[in-house]
Design a protein around this nucleic acid. Structure first.
Length: 571
RNA sequence: GCCCUCGUAGCUCAGAUGGAUAGAGCAAGGGUUUCCUAAACCCUAGGCCGCGCGUUCGAAUCGCGCCGAGGGCACCA
């Protein structure tokens, strides 16, 4: 008897009593918020209007009519509490069904083929060349990469793109700065710090010296016209930057299918501008070429500056159409900060006006809030940033300290400390809702207790050493699941939600849902582990309990992997 | 000025489609280790869910208004 069949049996009974269709009733079920209320709750509130009775009365009456004398198969108890009819399932059947599935499906548990045949393009990270990897860039990178993995788990074909900020006036600025001060820097070791120093220095001088600012623009024009020296410098800046970014991507275990930045669309914009012209969408305003969007309560979308050069929107529009043609996606997600919301609304609308109706429901700006520090915005220009490297370094040395103190026989301490540090950093970004601004607090980033990445890794590591100690092959489907009871049920009953949680993440572009679930599962297991001794003299009982432990580890390992966190064997 | 987002415990955050006594973690206080990792576990304390009005049998959740914080609003990206 499976729980789904039990649900059907319950629904049929209620349907015959109330006249509401079984299909309708099935969608009403809820999971009680408190365990002692049971496994399944049927809320009677929606019946109160039709029956003209108070919900608690309805629950009571239904109980008397249907469940006071006999129980449906698989149900061990029914109680009417408040306006709810609460069902408790027979422990054995719940556990056996959920546990067996995890053990049989292993690492593919939670996956499905709901996305089969569909392609999703994800644009994320999109870092700016010549700027160091700040803690703010992390959000796009981490959220995007996690969503990418989840979509793949659900059977989608995904294409990930790092839309590098590798074109624009700032490169002229950098070239101008390089030509003036370049000889003072070595660009060895950590070349991006030198580039960043040039960047800050340029803005510092340019703010009082407009001729320097003009030099920057001139250098960019030369770059656009194909000046060999400037092109070579530009390429060097990219190489330096990518060297550094690739190191960070390696640490975060983030990969991209394409590194097509803004410069990639340089020679593709003319065709799009011509198309806009042909479709009579362009107009002149204050010397610039725009698409007027006032009919849609939007400010105009700038296509060309008054000096004929292109803008951000032109490049993004071009990229959108190029990707559509090249990848034929069913959906395209832009994991970009919420500050650019208007920009996305604008060029999406322009594409729509060009006749690309699919934009309406296939192009999505997955926006996210700021990473603030001390309640303030971080700004690269003002030099007010927290660098990824600095956070990593501090977190790693703290992790190293704890490992050597708590578990001195861990073999590869440095490697482990790095993985723990990354887990802490990554998880803080994934465990809050996207649209919230998050405050970066050192104390929190360097905490490995409670709701953190290291907590999940720790749970995984304990499970791993338990499994190692047990030493026998797992999974073992011959174990007698009937030996498991109420204690195990608290853990096992969470298993069945895994797939739903991943699906919800994918639907809402929200990593928090999975992050939160993994914490709940880990916490349930840790609580169990504290109370119950798993490996005992009772061979058969040990055998079944180990199945539960193994299944728990399977889900935690898979979930961590989806989020981009290394599940550790020891720490 | 117009538009968008946010406001829940001292701090950081959960509370999907309105529903049971609003939940975690950190910090604070107390406790647990002859035994599978104490980065754990258990207990205590801590709340006019920014304020007001409205819709509803029922509102942290929906609507309107106000207050507060942040962001965006033409040649940066």
């Amino acid at each position: 008897m499976s729980t789904t069949e039990t649900k059907l049996a319950i629904v049929r009974l209620i349907s015959s009593e109330t006249g509401v269709s079984s299909d309708e009733l099935l969608t009403w079920f809820e999971t009680p918020k408190q365990a002692e209320h049971g496994d399944l709750a049927f809320p009677c509130f929606r019946l109160s209007k039709a029956l003209r009775k108070a919900p608690p009365q309805i629950a009571d009456d239904l109980w008397h009519a249907l469940f006071s004398t006999a129980l449906p198969v698989g149900v061990s108890g029914v109680k009417a509490i408040g306006g709810y009819l609460n069902f408790t399932f027979e422990t054995g059947s719940v556990i056996a069904e959920a546990l067996r599935r995890v053990l049989v499906e292993g690492i593919s548990y939670g996956s499905n083929s709901s996305g089969a045949g569909q392609t999703i393009v994800l644009e994320y990270s999109s870092v700016n060349i010549a700027k160091p990897f700040g803690i703010g860039h992390l959000r796009s990178t981490i959220i995007g990469a996690a969503l990418n993995r989840m979509y793949r788990k659900l059977g989608y074909r995904t294409i990930s793109i790092n839309h590098l900020g590798d074109w624009g006036t700032q490169f002229g600025n950098l070239i101008a700065a390089y030509k003036r001060w370049g000889s003072e820097y070595t660009f060895a070791g950590n070349p991006i710090r030198d580039l960043y120093a040039l960047y800050v220095r340029f803005h510092d001088v340019a703010k009082d010296d407009p001729t320097f600012e003009q030099q920057g623009r001139d250098e960019f024009r030369k770059l656009e016209q194909g000046d060999a020296e400037n092109l070579a410098l530009w390429q060097r800046f990219i190489d330096y930057s990518m060297q550094d970014f690739n190191r960070v991507y390696g640490l975060l275990n983030v990969k991209f299918d394409h590194l097509t930045g803004e410069s990639f669309y340089r020679d593709k914009m003319d065709a799009v501008i011509r198309e806009l012209e042909d479709k009579h969408l362009l107009s002149q305003s204050e010397g610039a070429t725009i698409v007027d969007l006032s009919a849609y309560d939007l400010t105009p979308c700038l296509i060309k500056k008054s000096d004929e050069s292109t803008l951000y929107a032109t490049r993004d529009l071009t990229a959108l159409l190029y990707r559509r043609k090249t990848y034929g996606f069913d959906k395209i997600l832009y994991v970009v900060g919420t500050a650019q919301k208007l920009h996305f609304q604008q060029f999406f609308k322009v594409a729509e006006l060009m006749g690309y109706d699919w934009v309406k429901d296939q192009a999505v700006h997955v926006d996210f809030g700021w990473v603030k520090f001390g309640g303030e915005m971080m700004s690269t220009r003002a030099g007010k940033v927290i660098f990824f490297d600095d956070v990593l370094e501090r977190a790693q040395s703290l992790a190293r300290e704890i490992i050597t103190r708590e578990n001195p026989d861990v073999a590869n301490v440095e490697w482990t400390a790095e993985k723990v540090a990354v887990a802490a950093i990554v998880f803080t970004q994934l465990k809050v809702r996207r649209n919230k601004d998050v405050n970066f607090v050192w104390e929190e980033a360097l905490s490995f207790k409670g709701e953190t990445g290291p907590y999940l890794q720790y749970t995984h590591a304990r499970l791993s050493s338990l499994i190692q100690k047990y030493g026998k092959p797992l999974p073992d489907l011959g174990a007698d699941f009937g030996l498991l009871g109420e204690e195990e049920k608290e853990v096992v009953k969470l298993f069945e939600f895994y797939e739903t949680k991943i699906t919800r993440c994918a639907e809402e572009y929200e990593t928090l849902i999975l992050a939160d679930y993994l914490l709940e599962l880990a916490s349930a297991f840790n609580s169990y582990w504290q109370r119950i001794r798993i490996i005992t003299d009772d061979v058969e009982l040990t055998r079944t309990r180990m199945q539960m432990a193994f299944a728990t580890r399977t889900i935690i390992a898979d979930g961590l992997q989806l989020l981009g966190i290394e599940p550790l064997q020891r720490m």
